[in-house]
């Protein structure tokens, strides 16, 4: 160990050490933030300056989205206005393949996305440029593995999510044919974006009522439920007693009656 570190470590227990460290940390954080926000958002965007990204987005929008959402994203008919929905909403809707919609059915379904990541980012940038809104989530923010608490996330999930998405996140029915989709196998980023933007029937879960840390906990619980092996045998869909009843009338009673027929048949 070099002498400098040793000298520093001597001051570690000094009573002003903690406040001093905190102030230093805050100043350096602020400085980093200043620099970072002045810089373009990510390394990829460095190669595509922001203005051209927006232009690219506007071009894709005009081609693929404007027929429903209007030339200036002002919305028309059942297609809502996109002014102020923010990049998060675009990233969720386009990134999960819900938009563009295949048909004007009750509810946009998750499918293979039509636009690739770059195109989605461009669209998001364009929509975000129209009016401020929630920013898209990047992977660096999804620190649920480190910062989430599974049990707390389960508690939050059961209070806020299970009534629509079912106790194991398998989804469920809403009114008039709408449904809450399963959250199993959905990218964490998209789940997070859904919580802050409230896509389609889903309400918004504000950062003040469910804090970002709590959202990470919810993600951690969802991912834990997703990877939880079947502890008691075939899961039967994790939808409750209906499939259990079906199985007992088919396999259970079927097996027993089959054996009863053999048992009472005359041997030859």
């Amino acid at each position: 160990m070099n002498a400098g570190v040793k000298r520093l470590s001597r001051y570690r227990r000094h009573r002003y050490a903690a406040p001093a460290l905190l102030i230093t940390a805050l100043i350096s954080l602020g400085a980093t933030f200043q620099v970072a926000s002045a810089l373009p958002n990510s390394s990829r965007m460095e190669s595509t300056p922001k203005s051209t990204l927006i232009e690219e987005g506007a071009r894709i929008f005009a081609q693929g989205c404007s027929s429903c959402h209007g030339l200036n994203a002002e919305g028309a008919g059942i297609a809502p206005s996109l002014i102020g929905v923010g990049a998060a909403s675009v990233d969720f809707q386009v990134g999960t393949g819900r938009m563009p919609m295949a048909d004007m059915s009750q509810q946009a379904m998750r499918k293979d996305p039509i636009y690739n990541e770059e195109e989605t980012a461009a669209l998001a940038a364009y929509v975000a440029s129209l009016a401020p809104g929630p920013a898209a989530i990047n992977e660096a923010q999804l620190t649920y593995e480190r910062d989430g608490n599974t049990a707390e996330g389960g508690e939050l999930f059961r209070t806020n999510c299970a009534m629509c998405h079912n106790f194991a996140g398998q989804g469920g029915a809403l009114t008039q044919g709408k449904y809450a989709p399963t959250v199993m196998g959905v990218e964490a980023k998209h789940i997070y974006e859904a919580m802050i933007t409230g896509p389609q029937s889903m309400p918004v879960f504000s950062d003040k009522t469910i804090t970002p840390e709590e959202k990470l906990s919810i993600l951690k619980w969802i991912k834990s439920a997703e990877s939880e092996p079947n502890l008691g045998g075939a899961s039967l869909g994790r939808t409750g007693p209906v499939t259990e009843g079906l199985l007992v009338w088919t396999l259970g009673l079927g097996l027993l009656i089959g054996i009863a027929v053999w048992l009472t048949a005359k041997a030859r």
């Binding site: 707390e152 508690e155 939050l156 209070t159 806020n160 409230g198 309400p203 918004v204 879960f205 504000s206 003040k208 009522t209 469910i210 804090t211 709590e214």
Partner: peptide, 18 residues
């Protein structure tokens, strides 16, 4: 859960809170 008081501006349009 959480037991935190809520201000009106904490809720966006379309938001719910238990």
């Amino acid at each position: 859960p959480g037991d935190r008081p809520i201000r009106p501006e904490d809720l966006e349009i379309g938001a719910v809170a238990q």
